[in-house]
């Protein structure tokens, strides 16, 4: 898929996020919209996976550690063929496979359960460590998406130390660096800077990119794979609510879903593509 096709797909995924949240009547808006480009790059370019055979043994593994951003994961999975796009309308409904936070036993293709913050990096590290026994030619990679607010959790830094110690070269982390969490700015709630320096001091290779630049995302992963001696974290600077003007940069949209009128306004600003990308 070309960069422009990836960009069109990201718009389709944003449209799905807005629609599913509006139908659900609750959920998180800002994070999923901000991460749409990252998840599009992952599911349509970076990950080695087979949506028809989610437990394929040769697959790359993706963990969503900040599980409250489930809508972007579900949208990326649906658009890439794990399940019908129509099923996105069941988000958060009774009996749905699309639980409010991702649950491994509910939906094939989910590698783990998440929601309580801070435990995704450890699981990814555990998987990457196990791969040192299983995948001796380093053909598989383990990716984990973390929110920046979630880096307040001590479990993250336990895992960061661990991955540094064991030089887990198949572990590639993303930090969705949007500077917001529920109570406000990450730097007011609990300052994270110098974030690059923190990870570097734990033995990680650190890259910083514009998390809305498709080519930059793809190139960063290519670099991370080539490092070959250490885990890499890609600090992806994103705009919370990206693509929906009235949500952008506003932390009040962290944990809120749009109503019908807000959703209509949001969708009007996210034009359907004329090209090949699916629209929902």
């Amino acid at each position: 898929m070309s960069v422009s096709e990836l960009e069109e797909t990201a718009v389709a995924i944003r449209r799905s996020i807005v629609s599913m949240l509006e139908k659900a009547g609750s959920g998180h808006s800002a994070g999923p919209l901000g991460m749409a480009d990252l998840l599009t790059a992952l599911y349509f370019n970076i990950l080695k996976h087979d949506p028809q055979n989610p437990s394929w043994e040769g697959r790359d593994v993706f963990y969503l550690s900040n599980g409250h951003t489930a809508p972007v994961l579900y949208a990326a999975m649906a658009h890439s063929g794990y399940f019908p796009v129509e099923e996105l309308a069941t988000l958060r409904k009774y009996g749905s496979r699309l639980q409010g936070h991702p649950e491994r036993s509910a939906l094939p293709g989910l590698e783990s359960t998440s929601g309580p913050l801070g435990s995704g990096l450890s699981q990814a590290a555990g998987y990457a460590h196990a791969l040192q026994h299983i995948d001796k030619d380093f053909t598989r990679f383990v990716y984990v998406m973390m929110g920046d607010g979630e880096l307040d959790e001590g479990n993250i830094w336990e895992a960061a130390m661990y991955a540094g110690k064991y030089k887990l070269r198949q572990l590639i982390g993303f930090v969705d660096r949007n500077y917001i969490q529920i109570d406000g700015s990450t730097e007011d709630v609990m300052p994270l800077e110098d974030l690059r320096g923190k990870f570097e001091s734990f033995g990680w290779h650190v890259l910083e990119i514009d998390g809305h630049n498709m080519q930059a995302i793809i190139d960063a992963v290519g670099t991370a794979k080539a490092v070959g001696s250490r885990p890499t974290v890609i600090i992806a600077h994103t705009v919370p609510g990206k693509g929906v003007g009235f949500m952008e940069y506003d932390h009040r949209w962290h944990g809120k879903a749009p109503d019908a009128a807000q959703a209509a306004e949001a969708l009007a600003g996210l034009p359907r593509a004329a090209g090949k990308a699916q629209n929902a």
């Binding site: 450890s122 699981q123 555990g126 479990n155 336990e158």
Partner: peptide, 18 residues
């Protein structure tokens, strides 16, 4: 794993996935 009980069990979960 070091003195890190949260990491202890979550790393184990990742290994169980594998």
């Amino acid at each position: 794993v070091g003195i890190a009980e949260q990491n202890l069990v979550t790393v184990a979960a990742g290994m169980a996935h594998a």
